[in-house]
Nucleic acid binder design. Structure first.
Length: 509
RNA sequence: GCGGCAGUAGUCUAGCUUGGUUAUGACACGAGCUUGCCAAGCUCGCGACGCGGGUUCGAAUCCCGCCUGCCGCACCA
């Protein structure tokens, strides 16, 4: 049992980052709420992701429904691959798709049959375990999508989306027009996805409802060159190749992005580019390089739509290597399926306008909840006297704490004034005058507040304040008029702490 | 989903074996006092037996079901 995980979760729970959902009704496994600080943190992670993919990559962001009619997910292959009735052998424990066994042993297609009927059908046809001949257990749904009915009456079948990607593929015709027919172009969607896990157990790592951020990059399969490949070509990647995994070798292959493509370890520039971008994103969340690796999925592990997939994994104390993002080469699978099922022509003109092509897709797909946990775990610091989240400044839910040194001589009033001004300037600030100054610093550290401003006797005389740095507990003095500007520069890493004001010595008891 | 163990204030915890006063303590939190910089101190206060049923005169304590968590198995497209 990992002590760190327990401490991180205890702190996260106590201070309002993460709570089990539906607690007063006993809770439901696989669901977590983000409390006030957790919601702020999550939004900052999402915002950072937007900066990477929407601002810098220039991808279009859309927002489509999370309830999806059945035809879409039939076309995408999810109905076939997600909603399987399963049965387990009671003797050897092997699990099988009910539909497969019925076809093999009774020669009948029972897809869509109610479970009770399937049970009767299995008894009637004496279906046994194909591996050991053992008795089979009760039939159960596994890993199903959440099913629902759209509207009354006819009850059109719908599902809660298992991924946001389909919303993008569905809109392809309008999106490519929005891109004015130019290739490549990318589209992203950030939103909830749903997977009805059988027994989610790893806390926030395996949720039944989770936030995902997905990008679909459309390109001409005849021209798989990323226009800005050179920008990331030199980035180092640590790859765990499928062939090494199959041989049971733990060894990682360290190459540059450029080498990865040249040596055909990664199938094309788009895939390699987004591996590198994913690495940069994780580093930017404060996750150290040593705990990041890219694992190539073996053919058996890959989803039905993918011909090559790399998982970005982060090592955690509690859960080992955790998949944070998947970079999948979806080929033209989705577009061709939707073209086929909808009857729409989804081909477009190639860059040279000489050919009609069906775009290929590379998909960097991220969970948001998992990196949030990883960022917390890797930010958690236990020092002699204090334990706190050393969150990156641009992730900290509260940016600045404002405290009066003492509750007398007009200090609280002055502190509230400073606090009010900082809020007006857009800072996520918190005022606290409870207990002693030391307690306030400790409470602020705990939730990762990078800077604390203290109003003391000097403030009242010379209109300046101290700023305290979370990581070093060092302090500087800064004029109140300059405070917002200095804080902004500090938070943006534009200035060094020691040079942002006059360093001061404090006398502690 | 199967088997084993567990669940007491915001957090940690005593009590459970052997049923019986107003459920223990600490920390945290709030108010007041105090306090010249890193969880100081004093006073007061808030706050819990996971949910439901059963046994019993009486249940935190014994029994059953459910929920949740942990461990193992299975599952994780």
């Amino acid at each position: 049992m990992s002590k760190k995980h327990e401490e991180v979760m205890e702190l996260a729970k106590r201070r309002g980052f993460i709570w089990p959902s539906f607690e007063i009704y006993g809770g439901v496994a696989g669901f977590y709420d983000f409390g006030p600080l957790g919601a702020l943190l999550k939004n900052k992670i999402i915002q950072k992701w937007r900066e990477f993919y929407v601002v810098r990559e220039g991808f279009f962001e859309i927002d489509s429904p999370s309830i999806v009619p059945e035809e879409v997910l039939k076309a995408s292959g999810h109905v076939e691959h997600f909603v399987d009735a399963m049965v387990e052998c009671q003797k050897c424990g092997a699990a099988f798709r009910v539909a497969d066994l019925a076809r093999e042993q009774a020669g009948k297609d029972i897809e869509g049959m109610p479970k009770e009927e399937m049970d009767r059908f299995f008894k009637k046809h004496k279906v046994r375990c194909p591996d050991c001949g053992g008795e089979l257990g009760k039939i159960f749904d596994f890993n199903a999508m959440f099913r629902t009915a759209i509207g009354p009456g006819s009850q059109r079948v719908g599902y809660l989306r298992p991924e946001t990607a389909q919303g993008i593929f569905i809109d392809f015709k309008r999106l490519q027009r929005h891109a004015r027919g130019k290739l490549p172009f990318g589209v992203v969607q950030i939103g909830k996805g749903y997977r009805n896990e059988i027994s989610p157990r790893q806390g926030i790592i395996r949720l039944r409802e989770f936030t995902m951020a997905e990008a679909e990059v459309f390109f001409d399969p005849g021209d798989p060159h990323h226009p800005r490949f050179s920008e990331l070509a030199g980035e180092q990647l640590r790859l765990w190749l499928a062939k090494d995994q199959e041989k049971g070798k733990e060894q990682l292959t360290e190459v540059t992005v450029e080498q990865a493509v040249k040596e055909k370890l990664v199938c094309n520039e788009f895939m390699a580019y987004y591996l590198a971008l994913t690495k940069r994103f994780l580093l930017d969340l404060g996750i150290p390089n040593e705990v990041i690796r890219f694992r190539e999925q073996t053919p058996g592990q890959r989803a039905h739509y993918s011909s090559e997939t790399w998982d970005a994994e982060v090592s955690t104390e509690r859960f080992g290597w955790v998949e944070i993002a998947g970079i999948a080469y979806r080929t033209d699978y989705d577009l061709s399926r939707h073209a086929q099922f909808s009857g729409e022509d989804l081909t477009i003109f190639s860059a040279d306008k000489k050919r009609k092509v069906l775009c290929h897709v590379v998909e960097p797909s991220y969970g948001i909840d998992r990196p949030l946990y990883c960022a917390l775990e890797h930010a958690y610091v236990q020092e002699k006297k204090r334990k706190y989240f050393r969150l990156k400044k641009d992730l900290a839910p509260i940016e600045v704490g404002v405290f009066p040194l003492l509750n007398r001589a007009g200090m609280p009033e002055k502190a509230r004034e400073v606090y009010g001004n900082l809020k007006l300037k857009g800072f996520m600030a918190e005022y606290n005058d409870a207990g002693s100054i030391g307690r306030r610093y400790a409470r602020a550290d705990e939730i990762g507040v990078p800077y604390c401003v203290t109003i003391d006797y000097e403030t009242l005389k010379q209109n300046d304040v101290t700023i305290r740095h979370r990581d070093t507990t060092k302090q500087i003095r800064v004029d109140i008029e300059k405070l917002p500007d200095v804080l902004k520069k500090l938070l943006n890493d534009e200035i060094e702490f020691d040079k942002a004001g006059k360093p001061i010595e404090t006398t502690s008891k």
